[in-house]
C-alpha cells in the first residue's frame, strides 16, 4: 500500500487510462464547453486543479475520514475547491466566466474527480496521489483541448481566438453547436481506438 511513487502513476493518465478517450469519464464538460480551444483549456485546467487539490486533501485525510462517511466528506472537499475555482475564474476574466457558464459549478459532479478520490487518493500516499491527479488532469486537459481545437478550427475558423484562414473559409456551424462536440469526440475516439488496436496487434505477448 505504501509503495514509493513511480512515474507510471503519472503516465497512465496520459494515454493508457486517459479519462476522456479510454475511461470516457466527465463527458458533460468534454462535450459542452469544448467549442473553442480557450474554453476547453480553461475547463481542463480548472478540472485538473480541483483534481489535484482534492486528491491531496483526501490522501492527507484518509486516516481521519471513516469509511461510512467518506462520500459526504469527498463531495464536501471537492465542492469547496470548485467554489474556489469559480471565484478565481470570475476574478481572472468575466468573459471566460460567462462562456463557461454553469459548467464550472458542474465540475463537482464530474465523476472523474470523485472516481480518483475514491479509487486512488483514499488508498495511497500524498506523493502518489499527486502524480495520479496530475496525470489524469493533464490527460483530461489534452483530450478536451484536442476536441476544442477541431471544433474551433472548423466551426469558427480560428484557434485560441486567432483567425486562421484569411477570408472565404466556410465555417461548419454544426461544430460549435452541441452536436459538434459529439462528432469531434467520435472522430478522436476513432483515431485513439485505431492506434490502440495497432499497438495491441504488435505486442500480443502482453
Amino acid at each position: 500500500m505504501n509503495q514509493p511513487p513511480t512515474t507510471d502513476e503519472f503516465v497512465k493518465g496520459l494515454w493508457r487510462d486517459n479519462p476522456v478517450f479510454v475511461q470516457v469519464l466527465g463527458m458533460c464538460p468534454a462535450l459542452a464547453v469544448s467549442n473553442t480551444a480557450i474554453n476547453a483549456l480553461a475547463m481542463g485546467l480548472a478540472t485538473s486543479f480541483v483534481l489535484l487539490m482534492s486528491g491531496i486533501s483526501v490522501s492527507l485525510l484518509r486516516r481521519f475520514i471513516p469509511r461510512e462517511a467518506r462520500i459526504v466528506c469527498y463531495i464536501c472537499i471537492i465542492a469547496s475547491f470548485v467554489t474556489v475555482v469559480d471565484y478565481a475564474i470570475a476574478a481572472i476574466s468575466l468573459e471566460l466566466y460567462r462562456s463557461l457558464g454553469a459548467f464550472i459549478a458542474l465540475i463537482v459532479v464530474n465523476c472523474l474527480i470523485l472516481g480518483r478520490a475514491e479509487a486512488f487518493a483514499s488508498k495511497n500516499t500524498v506523493g502518489r496521489s499527486v502524480l495520479d491527479a496530475l496525470g489524469m488532469g493533464v490527460g483530461f486537459t489534452v483530450a478536451l483541448l484536442s476536441i476544442g481545437i477541431v471544433r474551433e478550427i472548423l466551426g469558427s475558423n480560428s484557434l485560441f481566438g486567432i483567425a486562421l484562414f484569411p477570408d472565404g473559409f466556410q465555417t461548419w456551424t454544426v461544430m460549435v453547436l452541441p452536436s459538434g462536440g459529439f462528432f469531434a469526440m467520435a472522430l478522436w475516439l476513432l483515431v485513439v481506438n485505431r492506434i490502440k488496436e495497432r499497438q495491441a496487434l504488435k505486442e500480443p505477448a502482453q
Binding site: 466556410q170 461548419w172 456551424t173 454544426v174 461544430m175 453547436l177 452536436s179
Partner: peptide, 10 residues
C-alpha cells in the same frame, strides 16, 4: 439534417 446544421446559410 447534417448539412442544415453545418451550413445553415447555404
Amino acid at each position: 439534417a447534417f448539412l442544415q446544421a453545418a451550413f445553415p446559410q447555404a
